[in-house]
């Protein structure tokens, strides 16, 4: 692999990696707050992508407006989902998995009924002629994705650490019992977290539209890798989700430049090896079982 290819695939990888990171943060936020691995997250992303695309492609709204509209609608969907998922919060992992999966199936097939299975090609919202610097050619939209995702993550961190509501959400995640005692509405906090996680998925979904097709298949392709990224970083950790997402993106893209059809296989095998070496993920601390 020469330097040019390396840099090019690195940037491309960071682009798709930031999408994975946003998805992974959604998984981790919800897990941290509700103890729930939300297998409908990928489907939420797909519905968000469709809603944004409908506004952008069919109704010719501005791309940013499309993202905002999609975020609002998906945020509400996320909050509604909390009510359905509430009984699952206390159950074993397998039941949660199946319950959220059921919701995912519903969303998936509603989307198919409404939008069909063909998928929609989305125009780039900016002129996407590659920039050529020496031998290296970079797609400007990739840089847009990276910057936009970074902005979203910074905004999220600001919200969680500096605003009253964000702090309340964090404390409700960390000290469930205490928050209950203090009279906090834990259900509301859960709903807000699911809403917030879903908003991140919607943003990721609409942004990635021009790169991929917007199609029902997005849910499993982006959804499963987003989940794997969250686990790779350390489930429940936001920095972990970012690292996991970027790692997955770069890994996949780099392998793809060498043996394109094997990129998925190799990425997953490496992923499993990393887990075997670091069973709690990259930033997850190795907790010794308290006995």
């Amino acid at each position: 692999m020469n330097g040019t290819v390396l840099i090019q695939s690195l940037i491309g990888g960071l682009g798709i990696g930031s999408i994975y990171a946003l998805v992974a943060i959604g998984y981790s936020l919800v897990y941290r707050t509700m103890g729930l691995a939300n297998f409908a997250h990928g489907n939420i992303l797909m519905v968000g992508a469709y809603i944004g695309t409908v506004f952008y492609v069919s109704m010719h709204t501005n791309f940013i407006i499309a993202i905002i509209i999609s975020s609002i609608l998906i945020g509400i969907l996320g909050m509604v989902m909390e009510r359905i998922l509430r009984p699952l919060g206390k159950m074993d992992l397998i039941y949660m998995m199946l319950g959220t999966l059921g919701i995912g199936i519903v969303l998936q097939n509603l989307a198919i009924i409404i939008w069909g299975t063909d998928g929609i090609a989305v125009q780039y919202p900016i002129k996407n002629e590659p920039w050529v610097i020496g031998n290296i050619s970079i797609s400007p939209y990739t840089l847009v994705i990276i910057c936009a995702s970074a902005t979203v993550v910074l905004a999220l961190q600001f919200f969680l650490h500096k605003t009253k509501l964000g702090l309340a959400m964090r404390s409700s995640a960390q000290e469930k019992e205490m928050s209950l005692v203090l009279g906090m509405n834990v259900n509301l906090m859960n709903a807000l977290t699911l809403g917030l996680g879903s908003v991140l998925a919607a943003i990721a979904g609409v942004m990635v539209g021009p790169v991929f097709y917007v199609s029902p298949d997005m849910s499993s392709s982006v959804g499963i890798i987003g989940f794997a990224a969250a686990i790779l970083g350390g489930f429940g950790s936001i920095p972990g989700a970012i690292i996991g997402g970027l790692t997955f993106g770069v890994l996949q893209t780099m392998v793809a430049t060498q043996v394109s059809e094997w990129s998925q296989v190799i990425a997953f095998v490496i992923f499993v090896f990393v887990l075997i070496i670091k069973p709690s993920g990259i930033v997850g601390e190795r907790v010794v079982d308290k006995i």
């Binding site: 997953f268 095998v269 992923f271 075997i276």
Partner: peptide, 27 residues
């Protein structure tokens, strides 16, 4: 991998390997 990882981690590890097997068949 089950000798090292548990719960969600094992679920996604086995799922990932399962996807890898399917893609290997395709390839």
């Amino acid at each position: 991998p089950s000798l090292r990882v548990r719960t969600h981690y094992l679920a996604i590890a086995t799922l990932g390997l399962s996807i890898a097997v399917n893609e290997t068949i395709v390839n």
